[in-house]
Amino acid sequence: MKGSSQSQSQKRWFTIGLVSAWYASNIGVLLLNKYLLSNYGFKYPVFLTMCHMIACSLFSYIAVVWFKMVPLQTIRSRLQFLKISALGLIFCGSVVSGNVSLRYLPVSFTQAVGATTPFFTAFFAYLMTWKREAWVTYATLVPVVAGVVIASGSEPSFHLFGFVMCVGATAARALKSVLQGILLSSEGEKLNSMNLLLYMAPIAVFILLPATILMEQNVVSITVALARSDIKIIWYLLLNSALAYFVNLTNFLVTKHTSALTLQVLGNAKGAVAVVISIMIFRNPVSVIGMLGYVLTVTGVVLYSEAKKRSR
């Protein structure tokens, strides 16, 4: 009995450690992105995203092929490769749009908009598969959207272009999750998230390289010049890129060691923690009505998760 109790305690602490690492990497990359793109003045979101994808390509290869953290799943056909490429393109769009929005909007507001992901997921699922949810599930999406409308109307640092980019990033994330379920639904094509990232990240680099050259000319020479005057920019970029990979790694491990419901609850709480920490660090002005709007959105997301669970 004593051994069993000790094993349970170790398992509990292991899970707590995993969740803490997931929170730290998620919130860390978000705050560092904001600092680099807005406060530090490194105004190159496409190049920054490419750095993230290079790190994800390298670390994914090391984790899957060298350390064999999960069994390597091979691409079985040209069609499967095209499907993964389509997901990679949408993934690129979501990350780039999210990084662009951080140039113009505070983290607290982007988290409020990001919480509307269930709304877009339900919308795309209906549009692409004609899958209908119970009316109660759709009703829970009303406070999700209403909260963002309220938060937008009272956001002191509201920026229209940043808002459009943030909504685009949220919609792209939802579209990727729906498409992933459709495109890789057969048993022969299913990939776990670690293997999917292994293949998607290099495709993303291939897409982002010409985009960086066209949209952010001379970014490499500008970064080198910056590094000569402030070497910290290199360390910021390296840490930021490593964190981008660990977001995906810890997300996979938390999913593996907890239930889907626990993951949803933790995800909702993570957004709230990110809001509080970002306000403490960046001191961005937040109105009481704006915070109430965010609380309304998170409440709607919790109700949506509960309604989805009951409808299964």
Rank of each mutant, 00 (worst) to 15 (best):
S7I: 12
W13M: 11
T15H: 09
G17P: 06
L18Y: 02
V19S: 01
Y23R: 04
L30G: 04
N39F: 15
Y40K: 05
F42Y: 15
F42E: 09
P45Y: 03
F47M: 12
F47A: 13
T49D: 00
I54V: 15
A55F: 02
S57H: 03
S57K: 00
A63K: 05
V70C: 07
P71Y: 03
L72E: 10
R76H: 14
S77P: 05
Q80A: 06
L87M: 08
G88F: 00
G98A: 02
N99H: 08
N99I: 02
L102I: 01
L105C: 00
S108Q: 05
V113L: 07
F123Q: 01
F124E: 02
F124Q: 03
Y126I: 06
W135T: 15
W135G: 09
V136K: 11
T137A: 13
Y138D: 06
A139G: 05
T140L: 04
V144K: 06
V144C: 13
A146F: 05
V148W: 03
A151E: 08
P156E: 05
P156I: 01
S157P: 08
F158Y: 11
L160W: 13
L160E: 06
G162N: 04
V167T: 01
A171E: 01
L175K: 11
L175Q: 08
L175H: 10
K176S: 14
V178P: 04
L183V: 10
S185R: 10
E187M: 03
E189R: 06
K190L: 08
M194K: 02
L198W: 07
A201P: 04
I203F: 11
F206E: 08
L209M: 13
L214I: 15
Q217A: 11
V219L: 01
V220Q: 09
V224R: 09
A227W: 04
I231Q: 12
I233Y: 04
Y236H: 14
S241I: 05
L243S: 09
A244Q: 00
A244C: 05
V247A: 01
N248E: 10
N251P: 07
F252T: 09
V254Q: 04
T255S: 14
T255A: 14
A260L: 13
T262C: 07
T262G: 06
Q264P: 04
A269Y: 03
V275P: 00
I289S: 10
I289C: 04
G290F: 03
L292Y: 02
Y294K: 01
L296G: 01
A307H: 08
S311Y: 13
